[in-house]
């Protein structure tokens, strides 16, 4: 699949925004039960404004994916059936309720309404992330994405970005939550590493359809594509098969693993063990996560193979091939006589 840059920007901004708000409000929420001392008003406001600006940038960036930006409001019409419609509604509602929460927080109007909108924003934020992930996970024609791992990983990435940025805020304002959030960042990055590995390993075991299945022919017939009806590329071959991306995949996949998981994990471990938890290290962790996630999202799109590529002879045959002879699944044949 061709990676849309606008959606990658949306992922990064919405992910950081929702992740950051989840942790900010969760600390406030705990004070309702007498746990913890909450956050200074300034921290909540700064964190909330960062979240609001980021979701705004995300929505603006995502509109570049649309052909008709001014008609985007129409996306609320099919809430009942479409995950994209749900994502649009929840993302919009998240920004709106967040704004109200910040307003109530700033003017300290009524603690009930303040927490009511806080809880609402918290839930809608998670639903927004869930809906975005479900757009990919429910697409049964891209087998690589069609798994619950996509959703788990997607939500984990939100928490990963959010907790990393909250650690920076905690360090900046000297809050007593730094230790907890260093641990949480480590936990979510480690979990993300596990989910991404599982996502990649799963691709080795996918039962892929064949051209024979697409054309409803017996499985034992040899068949090959002679001609696809046009001498140049068309929408189907450019949108569903990114040739340049497939060539770069063997480079971008290790880079995404390195920047999203390996570098942050090593830095956090270093900070943990040596006790040098400072802003420099955690800014590096966050930036590494941000750049790594951008590359990872790009890789996620390129890794997806749409079944319509079968008609053009562009669908992988068996297993997962990165480069000829490298990370290639080989079929082993066992014979008694050879």
């Amino acid at each position: 699949m061709h990676p849309p840059i606008s959606l990658i920007v949306f992922f990064l901004t919405a992910g950081t925004s929702i992740g950051l708000f989840i942790f900010t409000y969760f600390i406030e929420f705990l004070t309702l039960f007498g746990k913890g001392s909450g956050l200074p008003k300034e921290v909540v406001l700064v964190s909330g404004i960062i979240s609001l600006v980021l979701i705004g940038i995300g929505a603006f960036a995502a509109s570049f994916h649309l052909g008709h930006k001014l008609r985007a409001w129409k996306a609320i019409k099919r809430f009942r059936t479409s995950w994209l419609s749900r994502e649009a509604v929840f993302s919009g509602a998240y920004g709106f309720t967040l704004l109200i929460y910040l307003f109530l927080m700033y003017y300290e109007i009524n603690p009930f309404f303040e927490h009511f909108f806080g809880i609402l924003t918290f839930i809608i934020g998670i639903l927004s992330g869930f809906s975005t992930a479900m757009i990919y996970a429910t697409n049964k024609f891209v087998l690589e994405w069609n798994t619950s791992l996509t959703v788990l990983y997607y939500l984990d990435m939100y928490l990963m970005l959010g907790s990393a940025l909250f650690t920076i805020m905690s360090l900046y304002y000297g809050l007593p939550y730094t230790g907890t959030f260093v641990f949480l960042t480590f936990l979510f990055v480690a979990l993300g590493f596990g989910f991404r590995l599982a996502f990649n390993i799963r691709q080795f075991y996918l039962k892929r359809p064949t051209l024979n299945e697409a054309l409803n022919l017996p499985h034992n017939r040899t068949i090959r594509v002679l001609d696809t009806g046009s001498t140049t590329e068309n929408y189907c071959t450019t949108e569903f098969y990114y040739r340049k991306g497939k060539e770069l995949l063997s480079t971008t996949l290790p880079i995404s693993y390195l920047l999203t998981f390996i570098v942050p994990l090593i830095l956090i471990l270093y900070a943990w063990i040596t006790g040098t938890v400072n802003l420099y290290i955690f800014w590096t962790v966050y930036l590494s996560l941000l750049v790594g996630s951008a590359v990872e999202r790009w890789t996620f799109f390129v890794e997806g193979n749409h079944v319509q590529n079968l008609f053009y002879g562009l669908y992988p045959e068996e297993g997962y091939k990165l480069r000829k002879g490298f990370m290639e699944r080989k079929e082993t044949r066992i014979s008694l006589y050879n």
Binding site: G67, F141, Y235, V307, Q308, F311
Partner: peptide
């Protein structure tokens, strides 16, 4: 009503929907 999000073409296993870059 079409906003040109291309999601319908992602959901077609036959590749029978085409996005018009001009319109």
């Amino acid at each position: 009503d079409c906003i040109g999000c291309k999601l319908c073409s992602w959901s077609c296993p036959y590749g029978c929907r085409e996005y018009d870059e001009a319109d």
